[in-house]
């Protein structure tokens, strides 16, 4: 009996591991930045080159950082959702226009709507590297103390927004 149970058990274990492996998304690499201070930045804004925003300006409020670019097709998928989210005023969204041209970025916002309180302009992707960005769009939640509390890679879906991001934002705002 044992000589059948053992291989069968081994097979079932292997099948279980393979099934678990199939459900993982290899593109989602857990960020080491979670619960760490958001990296410092100082960037000119997309709309006004002479105006700058830095990390310290946003301390004391809970905010969302959304990395996007006009060349990024997946950014368009989440955009309507972000526009709708910004209208509800749960928390401000700041954009990070990543490796883009100023006129392309502004044109894109003109066409699809602008959910951003302001947009940081990062033409060389330097801020992106500091935030560990590797797949646009990416979305971060940053708390009052300037700590990164959540990161979502890829387009934000209604489920992620409803079940993860919004409850977290409410919790952090009331904290």
């Amino acid at each position: 009996m044992n000589r059948f149970l053992l291989p069968l058990g081994a097979f079932l274990l292997l099948a279980l591991f393979l099934a678990l492996g199939l459900r993982l998304n290899p593109r989602e690499v857990p960020s080491p930045l979670i619960d760490k201070p958001a990296p410092a930045f100082q960037a000119s804004t997309l709309a006004r080159p002479e105006a700058t925003i830095k990390r310290e300006d946003l301390l004391g409020k809970v905010w969302v950082l959304n990395v996007w670019a006009s060349w990024c097709a997946a950014c368009r998928d989440e955009h309507a959702l972000l526009v709708d989210f910004s209208r509800r005023g749960v928390a401000p969204i700041y954009g990070l226009n990543y490796k883009d041209k100023r006129e392309d970025g502004l044109g894109w916002l003109g066409r699809f709507g602008n959910p951003y309180t302001d947009t940081l302009f990062d033409p060389e992707g330097r801020i992106g590297i500091d935030y560990g960005v590797y797949g646009v769009p990416e979305t971060f939640v940053i708390d009052k103390a300037g700590l990164i509390r959540y990161k979502h890679i890829g387009p934000v879906t209604p489920e992620v927004l409803r079940d993860k991001i919004e409850p977290l934002l409410r919790k952090l705002t009331n904290a």
Partner: peptide, 8 residues
């Protein structure tokens, strides 16, 4: 690099 992207 590890601080930003993890051990991966």
């Amino acid at each position: 690099m590890t601080e930003r992207y993890g051990d991966f």
